[in-house]
Design a protein around this nucleic acid. Structure first.
Length: 558
RNA sequence: GUCCCGUUGGUCAAGUGGCCUAAGACUCCACCCUCUCACGGUGGCAACGGGGGUUCGACUCCCCCACGGGAUACCA
């Protein structure tokens, strides 16, 4: 077989000098140790937590080392294309603070290593495939999908490994004339790798390949022996081939991808060997898992698990900084302890290590996320939180937007309730929860929600409120204010201090806490809340007094 | 079927042959602080999947099994 002739037949218009791309895309001029990473989503536009998870690792690794992080759209499967997907991907990631230095963007490609859409790189792939053909490393295959299906069935019947290899790779033996004739007849074909892997050998007897995975350590697998497709009938490469060519030419140093790729590693190794290129550092991450209804751990799935979608966190009003913080905890096991030691440091100060990534799948724990949210939100200035909640409301709860819009200062004061000092309150978790938490500050959403304390009758309650109103001075300081409540407690037979009541419960109806709960009920409609005095200061004198009068009246009616 | 990866409390996890009577965080419980709640503090419950080896000694190394996950496409 004259491979040069075959290559010319297959790729008449393609360059014979793929090495020219080596000069078009020279090694990057980067500082020693800089990592080049990439995210390669398919253009469905659906970007999920797993993508964010690995994008985060990519981003940290690149930016921490002074390297480059780029976006490459892996649109080799035309069936998957969704309009506007690139914008969606970029926007989703940007919301969580992930930005690319290079690659596909809303305004088109940026950077010297493009094009960054695989669909636009056909001539590059073809140049390398042509060279493989010339070297006898690849060949056209004319088998129809029916033929391949029949082969698979026979292999299954004989308990053989499915796939095109060895004797099944019938098109390997086609003569030039046969090929030429089929092509002239317009028969569709793909280009397959002519694998050097041993066939008819037990896997354990096969040559083993050894790859150092940055997360998992040394990986040992039998070499590839499949004649995998490198170029589809459409002339577009498969993932395997595109990965090898692109990551070489784009000078990717670290390939971070999900563990589902582990099994195709031998294919990639053979391809890299055939091309004569150095392997990138592979980092195969574990999948995010969840516990499903029957209590078993399983991979988060697109279809079943709404929490996999990034939009889930956005629409549920989780602050991106909190999601980042939590993800970083899952990403690097030592982050949490570092955070405890450095509560105020920026995330970028944390030394992310790829080796510290877990190699078993982590369960995504919403309870923990909520806890992380509290710690993260407590550090965000109130004004910023107001903007955050406002933007969330605008998109997801427009009916409550008027509460925030134009009242930013009022809301900011509410959010700052008890947040100062060295033991700040940590009440705030997510946008909807924040609204729920502060709702009673707005008359439209104020209502009596809880029950009166057991130790206070309606009659006593009304009397307490009357006495409270009598002595109420809006300008009183907190201490003076509370002293007055103690006096009222005393008047009505409630202990001035809870401890007194605990010691001699028979002497009292209750204690000062019961009295203040009545007031709290009147002012907030709830039996639990932050400091009443501060709440009253924010509500203002008029609104406070009105609420007390109203509750007093309702108790009298009862 | 074959191949690969994984398995430490309910969850995230530290652990690289003796420092393990197995760290820390979340959850839960108790107590303290306290006008309620939250915060904070103190304490508590709770784990090396099973079986064989190797070794003076194994969570750590090897083998088998079980379980979970993945691959086995002209999807990525």
């Amino acid at each position: 077989m004259d491979y040069d002739k075959l290559a010319e037949l297959l790729f008449p218009d393609t360059t014979d000098d793929p090495d020219r791309y080596e000069t078009i895309y020279p090694p990057r001029q980067l500082p020693e140790g800089a990592c080049v990473t990439r995210l390669g989503p398919s253009p469905t536009g659906f970007i999920h937590l797993g993508n964010l998870f690995s994008a985060f690792a990519d981003e940290r690794l690149a930016h921490q080392t002074g390297g480059t992080f780029f976006l490459r759209i892996e649109d080799t499967d035309d069936k998957r294309y969704v309009e506007g997907a690139v914008e969606t991907v970029i926007r989703s990631l940007d919301y969580f603070g992930i930005q690319f230095d290079e690659g596909a963007s809303a305004e088109g490609d940026r950077g010297d290593y493009g094009p960054y859409h695989q669909s636009e790189r056909a001539e590059i792939y073809h140049a390398y495939v042509k060279r493989m053909v010339r070297r006898g490393q690849a060949y056209p295959c004319f088998m129809s999908s029916e033929e391949i299906e029949a082969i698979r069935q026979e292999q299954e019947k004989n308990q053989e490994n499915p796939g095109i290899y060895g004797k099944w790779a019938k098109s390997r033996d086609l003569s030039f004339e046969e090929i030429e004739q089929k092509i002239q007849a317009g028969e569709p074909y793909v280009i397959r790798l002519k694998s050097d892997g041993a066939v008819d050998t037990e896997p354990s007897e096969m040559r083993q390949i050894h790859v150092q995975d940055a997360i998992r350590g040394e990986i040992t697998m039998p070499e590839n022996n499949m004649d995998v497709v490198v170029l589809k009938a459409t002339g577009i490469p498969t993932y395997h081939f595109a990965h090898v060519v692109d990551d070489h030419l784009m000078r990717t140093t670290h390939v971070i991808r999900g563990e589902e790729w582990l099994s195709s590693l031998p294919i990639h190794v053979e391809l890299f060997e055939k091309m004569g290129w150095e392997l990138p550092v592979y980092c195969h991450t574990a999948h995010l898992m969840k516990i499903d209804e029957n209590g078993t751990k399983r991979k988060l799935s697109k279809r079943k698990d709404p929490e996999l979608s990034l939009d889930y966190y956005r629409s549920d009003g989780y602050h991106p900084a909190a999601v980042r913080e939590y993800l970083l905890m899952l990403l690097n096991s030592n982050f949490e302890e570092w955070r405890i030691a450095n509560p105020d440091a920026g995330e970028e100060e944390f030394a992310f290590q790829i080796e510290k990534m877990s190699n078993s799948g982590a369960l995504f724990d919403m309870t923990k996320l909520n806890d992380v949210c509290k710690d993260v939100l407590v550090k965000i200035p109130a004004a910023e939180l107001v903007e955050f909640v406002k933007n969330w409301a605008r998109e997801f709860r427009p009916e409550i937007l008027p509460l925030f819009e134009g009242h930013e200062d009022y809301v900011a004061k509410i959010l700052d309730l008890g947040r100062s000092g060295n033991k700040p309150r940590k009440d705030l978790i997510s946008a909807p929860q924040i609204f729920e938490f502060i709702r009673y500050f707005f008359d439209d959403y104020f209502e009596i929600e809880d029950e009166m304390p057991e130790r206070v009758t309606a009659e006593d309650g009304a009397a307490i409120l009357a006495a409270y109103l009598e002595t109420y001075e809006h300008s009183d300081g907190q201490d003076v204010w509370f002293e007055k409540i103690r006096v009222i407690a005393d008047q009505f037979g409630y202990a001035r201090k809870p401890k007194d009541f605990k010691k001699h419960p028979e002497d009292y109806k209750g204690h000062v806490g019961d009295v203040s709960t009545v007031i709290r009920m009147a002012v907030t409609g709830r039996s639990q809340s932050p400091d009443i005095w501060e709440i009253q200061q924010i509500l203002g004198e008029e609104r406070t007094k009105n609420r007390i009068r109203e509750f007093e009246a309702s108790l009298q009616r009862a």
